[in-house]
Nucleic acid binder design. Structure first.
Lengths: 134, 134
DNA sequence: TTACGAAATGTTATATTGTCACATCTCAGG
DNA sequence: CCTGAGATGTGACAATATAACATTTCGTAA
């Protein structure tokens, strides 16, 4: 992973936990999990998450108030950045979708009205492969 | 507007306020605004919003924890429904984007991995026409 | 007409999510 | 060594959302 080397202690604890669990976690779930690493307050978790997000190592899943380790390579290029998630309402699994191919289309949509997009987020809700038959 | 006739007192108060203001408002901003209509608790606001959303008269803007009156005709057809917003980080204006043309592309993206999308939300952050020059 | 139940509404308290303010620590540059 | 900018820790608090339960409303059927 790019940039995982220059993480401080709290960032490492939070990032490792997100990777280990492989699912979307709320800040307070994370807090409970990283207490053994010496993190005691929400502020510390949110600060770590904020910096991890700047480094594109985690993403915030808006519709869940949760955070997830990034699974795609996002080149370190500056914005605009575009990311998508497919969220299963049955089992809660969150899968990152690569939208790079769509970027120009999505940005063009808004640009028609004079809007300059800096970053964007797409969240799909539905049923994953495993849950859709049940 | 379709279905604005069968709104109850609280739904009407909340919906009218959203239309009157024409911007995205948080549930608590709404609560303050509709107190004169007799609404006193967050629960009442959230219940009204929930039913207005079911009727496609308001949308929740996830990345703002806010709600906005719908400006597009969403046919009363069942899901999947797809809506987008362009949000100006400078002045806060929120513009609804019609994504109906994109629906099949967006859904196809996830479908490749076996995901069945039921509804989706796209939120673009950036600068609106007026703010992007400043 | 009255009685009943389901759904809507109101009310209070509480849970969850996120931020502020300020003290303390760390460490590179002068 | 000093200093000061940025990182970190801590406690209090603000903002957002839901739970639990009482009350009301209203259609329906005895």
């Amino acid at each position: 992973m790019p940039g995982t080397s220059d993480l401080n202690k709290n960032e490492t604890a939070v990032y490792d936990e997100l990777v280990r669990r492989g699912s979307a976690l709320t800040a307070y779930e994370l807090l409970d999990s990283v207490r053994p690493s010496g993190i005691r307050s929400p502020t510390q978790v949110y600060r770590a998450l904020e910096r991890l997000a700047e480094k594109h190592l985690v993403h915030r899943v808006e519709s869940m108030n949760a955070f997830i380790a990034c699974t795609h390579a996002h080149d370190d290029a500056p914005n605009p950045d575009t990311v998508g998630f497919a969220i299963c309402d049955e089992c809660g699994i969150v899968t990152e979708i690569d939208l790079s191919a769509l970027e120009s289309i999505l940005y063009g949509l808004a640009d028609k009205s004079g809007f300059r997009t800096e970053h964007s987020r797409l969240e799909l809700r539905g049923k994953c492969r495993n849950c859709k038959t049940s």
